[in-house]
Simulated scan of single mutants.
Amino acid sequence: MSTQLIIQKSIAYMEQHLEEQLTLADIASHAGFSPYHFHRLFRKEVGMNIADYLRKRRLCYAAQLLLYSEAAIIDISFHCHFESQESFTRAFKKLYGMPPGRYRKIFAAHAHHSIFEQGDDSMQQQQSQSALKGWFLSGSHPQDYEIGIDRTTVHQGSTSGYLKAVTPMDMGAFATMMQQFKAGKFVGKRMRFSGFVKTENVKEYCGLWMRVDSHSEDVLQFDNMNDRRIVGSTNWNHYAIVLDVPEDSATISIGVLLMGAGQVWVDSFRFEEVDRSVPTTNLEVQYEMLEEPANLSFEE
């Protein structure tokens, strides 16, 4: 089993038992590793240790409870496995920049308003997309999709990004929430684009994607997770693409794509250099060049 599949299996286990008491030993045992080895593996792949991951996920869950329930803060503290309301308040303030009581007071009305208010769909779509700094919508049928930020379905922090189909479409139609940037500072490096993804009713498939193009706009490296598709409805999990950035690289494109109907949420993207021990996920097939023309009569 690949490292990425091991991490995905462990994250799925944590998501299923997030409201229960979890230990590193429990999670490592589920993944089939010793706690020491699994701790190192998880940190290298996800960029944080198990304790930090669980703390951030539980704080995110606590933030949702603050906004969408009337539970007392002390009850939320214990429900999210903090030893006291004081320790919960310190951790929450460190991540969200304010204590939980103030967070609830400021944002609860906005959250309720965003759920129950009905308005002009096109105006809401424009406002949502305009707020998504750095990202744009593209693909074969961008008019059939929308992108935006979501404050109710979140992996970490207070918002996530989403891409969803909004109108019926032909088979094979797709859209992507993406961005492009110059390759210069990454040339000669092996780069990993990773993040957390959640899906709902994805009919064909979705996945992260990354492409490295040359100055002549030839594709040098490419992966769209076509060989490890995400389909159906899935809980938050971690996915990654690893590509080399060759010397002739000019631009890098990254994003999430959705083919067909459904919705995908993304959060906590990372773009970072990894060492050469991390295998690439490049999908380009290398063909052996023939010595001379073959089957010119089409009879073979």
Rank of each mutant, 00 (worst) to 15 (best):
D144R: 02
S140G: 03
G161A: 01
Q127E: 06
M123L: 07
K164E: 00
Q127C: 02
Q127W: 03
Q143E: 15
H112K: 11
T152C: 13
S122F: 07
G161F: 05
T153N: 11
I115L: 15
A108C: 09
K133R: 06
F116L: 15
D121L: 08
G134Q: 05
L163Y: 04
G148I: 01
A109F: 02
D150R: 12
A131N: 02
W135R: 03
S160W: 00
A165P: 01
R151H: 09
G157C: 10
M169P: 02
G119K: 13
V154P: 05
H113Q: 14
G161N: 10
T167M: 14
E146L: 08
S130V: 04
T153G: 02
Q156Y: 01
E117N: 10
D144F: 12
S158D: 12
D150W: 04
E117R: 15
S114G: 04
E146F: 02
D144P: 00
G139S: 14
D144A: 15
S138E: 06
H141R: 08
I149L: 13
T167N: 12
F116I: 10
Q126C: 10
S160A: 06
A165R: 02
S130N: 05
T167E: 11
A109S: 09
H141A: 14
G157E: 10
T167L: 14
H113S: 14
W135L: 15
P142F: 03
A131D: 08
D170N: 13
K133Y: 07
G139Q: 11
F136K: 15
Q143K: 10
D170W: 06
I147R: 08
Y145H: 05
S158M: 11
Y145E: 00
Q143S: 15
H113I: 06
T152I: 04
D144T: 03
V166T: 14
S158T: 06
R151T: 05
L132V: 00
I149N: 08
D121E: 08
S140H: 08
D120F: 05
D170G: 07
L137V: 10
Y145R: 11
V166C: 06
M123G: 00
T159N: 15
F136C: 03
S114Y: 07
T152Q: 13
R151A: 12
F116E: 14
A108R: 14
R151F: 04
L163S: 02
G139H: 03
V166L: 00
H113K: 13
D144C: 14
H110D: 13
P142K: 09
L163M: 02
S130P: 00
Q118K: 05
G161R: 07
G139F: 07
Q156F: 01
K133W: 03
A111Y: 01
I147Q: 09
G148M: 00
G119N: 13
Q124D: 04
K133I: 12
A111M: 08
Q118L: 07
Q125N: 09
P168M: 13
D121I: 13
V166P: 01
T152F: 03
L137S: 10
S140D: 11
R151C: 05
H112R: 08
H110V: 09
T159F: 12
